[in-house]
């Protein structure tokens, strides 16, 4: 990243000081979520309840899953601009093939994860700019979605509907699901020995290659994981909305990038945080509509609110980084 990242690394400060600033930055996602929750509680105390959360966080699960998908791509210093239409495509397959002919449906979804892995390989081998490739793929997924489901409709498989409608005692399902997603991905990417290699490929690819690791393989794995979580996101989405539409996932591309960034991730350098990404997704899910509705902000401005949140968080981060030095 050209001059943008010049001079952001702390050179002379001690590890402790830098660690404190990094912790502060790490707390930013949690802090934004708490702020949004306080605002909601203040505007509408009744929303802070089992029922309220179930309702408000309704769409948080697919957003969180799409954010995790994007996070894997960003961990390898790439960007996926097709994740939204991919989620839409998966949704259409879920509402049609997966219900009517489960075996074929499963094969299609597995195949689409394979396509993601192939894209990773292609991007690595031909040294392609990921944003152009994924921008092209966004058309492919959208077209396939229309072919699968020309008109809005279809129906989610019953097992999926009942899964997403699950009502555990005390804690609303979306919260449990978010915790589960964060825990699983955190363990996989941050704690396992291969997770280290995956993150290292974003941190210093040359060093990794020098130590004998295959960058082709890390890229394939990262893209395949993105595909896997994209599939999960699309399925979860249809489990909630019950029927599909070829355009249903279009907004997720931007939401997912915003979620990763809100969650403390950086575009280069392999610095990502699964827990932060899930928190970022929850913040967006809450801020995007319930909060704004409670604030009587017209729906027109809800998209802008997402953009503004992104800018505010990035600005806050710049301020913290400046203090770091």
């Amino acid at each position: 990243m050209t001059i943008v990242s010049l001079g952001t690394s702390p050179k002379n400060s001690s590890a402790r000081g830098a660690a404190r600033a990094r912790m502060l930055r790490g707390l930013l996602p949690a802090l934004s979520l708490v702020l949004v929750l306080i605002a909601i509680a203040w505007l509408n105390p009744r929303a802070i309840s089992y029922f309220g959360f179930s309702l408000m966080l309704n769409l948080a699960i697919p957003i969180a899953l799409a954010t995790i998908a994007q996070m894997f791509v960003i961990a390898g210093n790439e960007l996926d601009l097709s994740i939204g239409t991919f989620v839409g495509f998966v949704g259409c397959v879920t509402a049609t093939w997966l219900k009517d002919a489960p075996l074929i449906g499963v094969l299609i979804l597995l195949g689409s994860i394979g396509v993601y892995a192939l894209l990773g390989a292609l991007i690595h081998l031909r040294n392609l700019p990921s944003i152009v490739v994924t921008l092209g793929m966004s058309f492919v997924w959208q077209g396939l979605a229309i072919l699968v489901l020309p008109k809005p409709g279809g129906k989610a498989p019953d097992w999926l509907l009942s899964l997403m409608a699950f009502k555990p005692p005390f804690i609303p399902f979306p919260i449990i699901a978010a915790l589960l997603i964060a825990a699983v991905v955190h363990f996989g990417l941050m704690r396992t020995s291969y997770g280290v290699i995956l993150r290292g490929s974003g941190g210093n690819a040359a060093a990794l290659e020098r130590a004998g690791w295959s960058l082709l393989r890390t890229r394939i794995v990262l893209f395949a994981l993105a595909g896997l979580f994209g599939v999960l996101s699309g399925m979860a989405l249809i489990g909630i909305t019950t029927s599909a539409d070829a355009n249903i996932g279009n907004g997720y591309t931007l939401l997912a990038i915003a979620g990763v960034i809100l969650g403390g991730g950086e575009f280069v350098g392999g610095r990502v945080s699964p827990i932060g990404a899930v928190l970022g997704a929850l913040t967006l899910a809450l801020a995007a509509s319930p909060l704004l509705t409670f604030m009587h902000i017209p729906p027109d401005w809800q998209v802008a609110a997402n953009g503004a949140i992104l800018i505010i968080v990035l600005a806050a981060r710049v301020l913290i980084s400046r203090r770091e030095r």
Binding site: G136, M137, S138, F139, V140, W141, Q142, G143, L144, A145, I146, L147, P150
Partner: peptide, 11 residues
């Protein structure tokens, strides 16, 4: 159809 058109453009 529109779907094929999009797919081809993307490809």
């Amino acid at each position: 159809s529109a779907g094929v058109r999009l797919v081809l453009t993307g490809l």
